[in-house]
């Protein structure tokens, strides 16, 4: 694992919990210091051997083009540097307003033998939502 020091980055202000519906996210985002992917998308990750799958889905389909522009394979690979050791393959699904990634050599040898606490890479999904728009 790459043990280089973490660069300092501004943290997003936490949105108020509960109550607001999905289509109100823009106003939630507006209260933050800056907008992140979390303001317009949700994400889910899963495992396939030593590969992690990562899907990012626009909360409102109208935000899909912005999301697709932001989420190049290179950008996602750079974001996960130190976690994902291999290449990142991207699939765009405009009809579903989703961008899907397969990240190779991402799970410490695979779920069944990994030393990681989150051997499945389930928590990777949240990390991508921190990308600034």
């Amino acid at each position: 694992m790459n043990m280089s020091a973490a660069p300092g980055r501004p943290k997003q202000a936490r949105a108020p919990s509960g109550g607001s519906a999905v289509h109100e996210v823009t106003s939630v985002g507006a209260t933050s210091q800056y907008r992140t992917l979390r303001d317009i998308a949700l994400a889910r990750s899963g495992d396939k051997g030593n590969r992690a799958t990562l899907s990012v889905i626009a909360l409102d389909p109208k935000d899909y083009p912005e999301m697709e522009r932001l989420l190049s394979a290179e950008r996602v690979q750079a974001h996960f540097a130190g976690v994902v050791q291999g290449p990142v393959q991207r699939y765009t699904l405009p009809d579903l307003a989703a961008v899907h990634f397969v990240m190779f050599d991402a799970l410490g040898g695979g779920v069944t033998r990994s030393l990681a606490l989150d051997a499945h890479g389930k928590t990777l999904s949240a990390a991508v939502l921190d990308l600034p728009l």
Binding site: M1, N2, M3, A5, R9, F80, G82, V83, L115, A127
Partner: peptide, 21 residues
């Protein structure tokens, strides 16, 4: 082969994405 890490800081996503506070 081992992992030595701080849960609450870098155990999930390593030092690059981990907490800086």
């Amino acid at each position: 082969e081992h992992r030595a890490e701080l849960i609450g800081v870098n155990a999930m996503h390593g030092p690059q994405l981990g907490a800086d506070r």
